[in-house]
Design a protein around this nucleic acid. Sequence first.
DNA 1: AACAATTAAATTGTGTACAATTTAATTGTA
DNA 2: TACAATTAAATTGTACACAATTTAATTGTT
Lengths: 141, 141
Amino acid sequence: MSKNILKLSNQVCFPLYAATRQITKLYRPMLEKLEVTYPQYLVLLVLFEDVSVTVKELGERLYLDSGTLTPMLKRMEEHGLVERKRSSKDERVVEVSLTEKGRSIEKKAEEIPNRFSKEIHLEQDEFDELKRLLTKILDQV
Amino acid sequence: MSKNILKLSNQVCFPLYAATRQITKLYRPMLEKLEVTYPQYLVLLVLFEDVSVTVKELGERLYLDSGTLTPMLKRMEEHGLVERKRSSKDERVVEVSLTEKGRSIEKKAEEIPNRFSKEIHLEQDEFDELKRLLTKILDQV
DNA sequence: AACAATTAAATTGTGTACAATTTAATTGTA
DNA sequence: TACAATTAAATTGTACACAATTTAATTGTT
């Protein structure tokens, strides 16, 4: 009845919320070897694709705001992974790029998605469908 | 090539991570009317099902530990939503239950999942499949 | 040029998350 | 019964996450 609507087991959001955190935990030991957290790893992924991005661009790509990114990027800077530089063209803008050390992690970072997909026992088409559905949600909100 | 493995767009974890946060944002305005956060809402859902649960049980149901739950439950207690009581049988255990005020939210809380599913434009079978895949992941990790 | 409007980051404040440790109570075993 | 091992919460410390505000630079308009 109406009560069932509220059952945890009937919600989509709850398994989404829980699975995300459990998977992040799965990533943790691998990421610890690179001395980064999962959100920091995502920043690296963006910077492996593009040599330099602004904080604003990073925020748009990762769905994060400056309140999250600014302190995180400062931590990554302290760890010697990235460089933050005010744009000379527009002093409001901060350009983020990899340091030599940050760049040197790329090889090790490549191994992670593979090892991960081995720990999650989904068929390839299940992976694809999951990604499709999540991306569809992301495009709508 | 090997580089593509690291592309954000090729990862499952990233849309999972991002979609979770975007959906939580969607929930926020509705939950604000009840004066609870999303994780607090989950605690309420458990307590709508079971009159009383221990912190340990809550942690198992929501995949959270006492480091997260203890301060959260204290906040909910301060807001008059729940009651925390040491078990007399076993003084180590804390039993959590709804107050009158907490119980009174149930009707309003019931409306949320419906409104939510209208904002996310997925077919019923897509919803079901998404839930199935996420639950499968949760069961494995 | 002057200045209001806009924009990009940074800051502030609150609330999760979680690893690791601590505290206190209970249980198992010599 | 003593007391080591285990267990449940709480605590400590670090790192997101995000709403709301602030700061500083740039742009648009008169």
